[in-house]
Simulated scan of single mutants.
Amino acid sequence: MTKYAALLRGINVGGSKKLPMAELRQLMEGLGHDGVRTYLQSGQAVFATGRGDEDSLAEELAKAVEARFGFTVDVIVRDHAYLRAVADSCPFPAAELEARQLHVTYFSAPVTADRFAGIDPAAHLPEAFRLGDRALYLYAPEGLGRSRLAEALSRPRVGKGLIATTRNWNTVLKLVELTAGGE
């Protein structure tokens, strides 16, 4: 069995797309997943399964949420090895930063630097970003809510079929921890 994290985008934010975590766990167990746990209220669940791949598991969960709760939600599923690689490949000195200063945007597919070519990194210093494999690392010393760079990075249209969802560094590390073992 492989352990995965499901990242649901935009649930339980600002009073919209309410999805109680206990009901999400029940839904995922009903799909045949084992060891389902949720983390926080903002759309992270970990589970184990011996079937499917990341894309098919994400699609299955998105369809199940829509059928049960009546709204669409974007879902990205990543296995432990990928989550670990993202954490290990951080280009910023994560151990020296506060968690609110470092974020990872997970993409459902690879993105190239061309997508962000219109952004002048020097205009946003000391904020900075780096691209990884299906991930973007953002250093925002004043936090995400005050980041002009985060706003600029969100402007390039994600594109049809491409999903992006951002997590702070504490959540990145917690998902690595929660998906460890059993592989």
Rank of each mutant, 00 (worst) to 15 (best):
M1W: 07
K3T: 05
K3S: 06
Y4V: 01
A5V: 10
L8A: 13
R9Y: 11
G10S: 05
I11E: 00
I11N: 03
I11Q: 01
G15F: 02
K17A: 12
K17D: 07
A22P: 05
E23R: 10
L24H: 03
L27A: 05
M28H: 13
E29D: 13
E29W: 06
L31C: 11
L31F: 11
G32C: 11
G32Q: 11
H33G: 07
D34K: 07
D34F: 03
G35Q: 07
G35F: 04
G35R: 05
Q41K: 09
Q41P: 02
Q44G: 14
A45E: 08
A48R: 15
G50V: 11
G52V: 08
D53M: 07
D53Q: 10
E54V: 13
D55Q: 08
S56M: 11
S56I: 09
A58P: 01
E60T: 12
A62Y: 12
V65S: 01
V65F: 09
R68M: 05
R68E: 13
F69R: 04
F69E: 03
G70Y: 10
F71P: 02
D74E: 10
V77T: 07
V77L: 07
R78E: 02
R78T: 05
D79S: 12
D79Y: 09
H80E: 14
H80K: 13
H80W: 12
H80R: 07
Y82G: 05
L83W: 01
R84S: 08
R84Y: 06
C90N: 07
P91V: 12
P91A: 15
A95C: 08
E96I: 09
E98H: 08
E98F: 03
Q101P: 08
Q101K: 08
T105H: 02
Y106Q: 03
A109E: 14
P110V: 02
P110W: 01
P110N: 06
A113L: 12
D114R: 14
A117E: 13
G118S: 13
G118D: 15
G118K: 14
I119L: 10
D120P: 04
P121K: 13
A122N: 09
A123V: 06
H124N: 11
H124R: 10
L125F: 12
L125K: 15
A128Q: 15
R130S: 07
L131P: 06
G132W: 00
G132V: 00
R134E: 07
A135C: 12
A135W: 00
Y137R: 00
L138Y: 02
Y139N: 00
P141Y: 06
P141E: 15
E142S: 15
E142P: 05
L144G: 05
G145Q: 09
R148L: 08
E151T: 13
E151P: 06
L153G: 02
R155A: 12
R157Q: 15
G159Y: 07
K160C: 10
G161F: 11
G161S: 10
L162F: 09
A164H: 04
A164F: 03
T166K: 01
T166A: 10
W169H: 00
N170G: 03
T171D: 02
T171I: 07
V172S: 00
V172M: 14
E177P: 08
T179S: 11
T179K: 03
G182F: 09
G182W: 11
G182Y: 11
E183M: 13
E183S: 15
E183L: 14
E183P: 15
E183H: 15
